[in-house]
Nucleic acid binder design. Structure first.
Lengths: 86, 86
DNA sequence: TAGACATTTAGATTATTATCTAAATGTCTA
DNA sequence: TAGACATTTAGATAATAATCTAAATGTCTA
């Protein structure tokens, strides 16, 4: 779960997840939402992908990213346990 | 919420929260659970305190730390929203 | 009130991370 | 198949963060 927490620690990466909530987007579309270079966004995407918070599917020359919230379950479980809500 | 995510990104700090789940502990008690110097743990505690994930109460020469899970609510809400469970 | 103890602060070092520019890779289409 | 476009990789730099030792601060008690 460490990769997940590390990935969530950066505000840009959390914003990317927020963007993907509404619809899947290409790397370029995502980058266009930020005042940051494409390689920087590409790096953030690779961190999110390594944490399995996003999925990447190649469609021709585009790579379409989508949200994967399955690991949120583990985080939520950990938090609820800390709250004593086993 | 950035401070919360930043605070949660470090495994030592998450372990400290796990420790405090069972009972409140002094800074020294917490430090004794780790193979790290007391100043390092003190630094981690200050980051957790800044994020409001722990509360610190002075009792004589001891400082007793306790878990504060109120902000977890915000994190859980954010995650559920991303999952489309508004 | 001197000394022991608990904790933090200060300052330095090292490791990690975020970001950039330039270049490489792969895909589409005229 | 040449060139345009989408994305990533490589390599460098700068900002953050984790950790340590040494010292300071505050509190208790003999």
């Amino acid at each position: 779960m460490n990769d997940v927490f590390k990935a969530l620690a950066d505000p840009t990466r959390r914003m990317i997840l927020d963007l993907l909530k509404d619809k899947d987007l290409s790397a370029g579309d995502i980058a266009n939402h930020f005042s940051m270079t494409k390689p920087s966004i590409s790096n953030h995407l690779s961190i999110l992908k390594k944490a399995e918070l996003v999925l990447a599917e190649k469609q021709g020359q585009f790579i379409i990213y989508s949200l994967n919230t399955t690991l949120f379950q583990d985080v939520i479980k950990w938090m609820l346990e800390l709250r004593g809500e086993t």
